[in-house]
Design a protein around this nucleic acid. Structure first.
Lengths: 199, 199
DNA sequence: CCATACCAAGCAAGCGCTTGGTTTGTAAAG
DNA sequence: CTTTACAAACCAAGCGCTTGCTTGGTATGG
């Protein structure tokens, strides 16, 4: 988690303890729980413990909050992913690392921000979608590299693009059923997903 | 499609040509496109070509429209699924049939209703969720039966519950990227999913 | 004649956001 | 130390608009 502090200090991530940060993560929580549209600024304000108007001292619009959440979710996960890849040697290890990272993103501490990113995409205005998309492409490029290596090595038989998309769905959907603290942990779940790919 | 007419005649499905039916399917279309919350009764009314107040002659509340769409989506797909299973002999054929059915549900003629069912679930009131859930269990039981047969036969290595859930995510997510009429058709996509399971 | 399907108008509530002013933490000036 | 200065954080009130839904009435086909 060293990288995270660096990201906060360099201003790429908002400090969760700042007033702005508290609004941001409560918003992520509510957006995940009730959806963007169903969450009102008054809901958010009372969750933070301030008046609804006060939010607009920190963010220009409700849209801006959504965009900021998504942006920071990607930046955070991009950092974690790259760090995690450095500890993997074989292609299979790398793929497992990516799977685990995404599972952690979706089910771990950033679960709110990440599921907002996945499931509230169309609530984002077209302009904002464009801005976020470039960050997202960077993220996807890493995945594709590893998958294509697996295909060359011969132990992946699916089409690379299709596989990535099927995996995106399978992994992000876990947020709706996986409960940590149960019989299965995220490591085992990653193994199941890897088993699916490898057969 | 013989079964569908029977379903309409017995009153289990609403006739798409009736006033009520026209509202229902236009609503499904809009709910999929813009989401439940972002779709207003005025949007829906102007799509159908009537005044917004007139909708309430056919449905008591906006919630009721959502519930009805989901209910009919399941009833429809349950019928299609059972018919499709009858034409499959081996367990692998059956699994492929289920995959294809769900892909068709999500990307075919019922695409709107089905993605509403998957992605607008939490817009449904708690009471309505309970009502729909019993229908959904019936649907899931069919899946589990086939998957467990595949495990017994030895060509599925995943845990049955986990596999079903991963597949649910993978398949339903296709709605966000698969475009029919492109290079790949739903049959080929079903093969890719089956390949994923079988390895 | 009467049920079905609809319209025109509008109500009450809730929405995102604005406004004008007050508190609070901080830090230099006296 | 105290005083002054000032920006950041916040409150109280409410504006303008949209929302789901209601109401009272009208047209139409069997």
């Amino acid at each position: 988690m060293q990288e995270v502090n660096t990201l906060i200090e360099t201003g790429k991530l908002t400090d969760p303890q700042s007033p702005r940060g508290r609004i941001l993560w409560k918003a992520a929580h509510l957006f995940k729980e009730k959806g963007f549209e169903r969450t009102t600024m008054r809901d958010l304000a009372s969750e933070v413990g301030i008046q609804s108007g006060s939010i607009f001292h920190h963010f220009k619009t409700k849209q801006d909050i959504l965009k900021e959440i998504m942006q920071e979710a990607i930046i955070y996960n991009l950092a974690i992913m790259r760090a995690s890849l450095n500890n993997a040697s074989s292609t299979e290890d790398k793929l497992r690392a990516l799977i685990l990272c995404e599972l952690k993103s979706v089910n771990g501490v950033t679960t709110e921000a990440m599921s907002v990113l996945v499931y509230e995409w169309r609530s984002l205005s077209k302009d904002n979608q464009k801005d976020i998309l470039s960050l997202r492409e960077e993220y996807e490029a890493i995945w594709m590299e590893v998958i294509e290596a697996g295909i060359k090595e011969g132990w992946i038989s699916n089409d690379a693009f299709i596989l990535r998309r099927l995996l995106t769905g399978a992994i992000s959907w876990t947020v709706s059923w996986f409960k940590s603290g149960g019989e299965m942990d995220l490591g085992q779940l990653a193994d199941e997903v890897l088993l699916l790919v490898r057969g």
